[in-house]
């Protein structure tokens, strides 16, 4: 999939190289001057429409660091990349206080407005339904950014279609991935309101980690089978790290 992107007949600019990019698009002259790899962006990419589905449901408030904070930063980074490439980026917020909303970035000058929009987000409610098919018309790239806890692969993968790529960026809090053993805790699901009291002995924590790892691996396998980039990141990573490893081609 990445090999189909980033190439075209009319040159409009450069963007940083990402693993998987077609080496034919690499600008060797610029590499020699800047000692960093850049790829040439064609007119076809510049006219694309991107959709970033940002999960702001209540579970995204889990932290620290807050998952929504990191996810919003990643969404903003994607929007910056898109605007650099000349793509129109729509950041659609699922869930969150105040219900579903979206913000469109057509020019780089609108990034500041996007940051302000994202800064007002508060986690809350459920993540709601996925974008309907009509909302995906003319969209060439779809990014799903969130904890993916209330989504199933068979519901998400259809977002990928003819001429439309899909990237999945899962963000989990450290305490969700590696809870510290010892003591007791009452786990609380802020979306469903359920509670479970458990003594976190090492054996139980290990069993939990195995179960979660099995889930993540299932996502990874299904995504790979469908050629969908998938990355699972901790919210204590910087958004630059996350973008570097899941940067769109």
């Amino acid at each position: 999939m990445p090999s189909q992107l980033g190439v075209g007949s009319e040159f409009v600019g450069h963007r940083p190289y990402a693993p998987g990019d077609d080496l034919r698009a690499l600008d060797w002259d610029l590499l020699a001057r800047s000692s960093r790899p850049w790829v040439r962006v064609a007119r076809r990419e510049a006219g694309e429409r991107w959709l970033v589905r940002l999960d702001a449901s209540a579970s995204m408030g889990v932290g620290p660091p807050g998952k929504l904070q990191r996810a919003a930063e990643v969404a903003a980074g994607i929007a910056v990349w898109g605007s650099r490439s000349g793509a129109a980026v729509c950041v659609s917020v699922a869930g969150g206080e105040g219900g579903p909303r979206e913000f469109r970035v057509r020019r780089r000058s609108e990034i500041a407005g996007l940051l302000a929009f994202l800064g007002r987000l508060r986690a809350g409610g459920g993540s709601g339904a996925l974008p309907p098919a009509r909302a995906l018309a003319h969209v060439s790239r779809v990014f799903v950014v969130g904890d993916l806890r209330d989504l199933r692969p068979e519901l998400v993968l259809p977002l990928r279609g003819r001429g439309r790529s899909l990237s999945l960026i899962q963000i989990l809090a450290p305490l969700e991935v590696a809870p510290a053993p010892g003591g007791s805790v009452e786990w609380w699901d802020p979306e469903r309101g359920g509670r479970v009291s458990l003594a976190l002995d090492p054996a139980l924590v290990a069993a939990y980690e195995r179960e979660l790892e099995r889930e993540v691996e299932a996502w990874r396998e299904i995504a790979a089978r469908h050629g969908v980039p998938f990355g699972c990141f901790l919210s204590d990573r910087t958004f630059e790290e996350i973008l570097e490893r899941s940067r769109p081609a």
């Binding site: 995204m60 408030g61 809090a173 805790v185 009452e186 699901d189 009291s197 939990y208």
Partner: peptide
């Protein structure tokens, strides 16, 4: 026990 929010309660 302290109450801690999580998105992985189902796990």
């Amino acid at each position: 026990p302290p109450t801690t929010a999580t998105g992985t309660l189902d796990v």
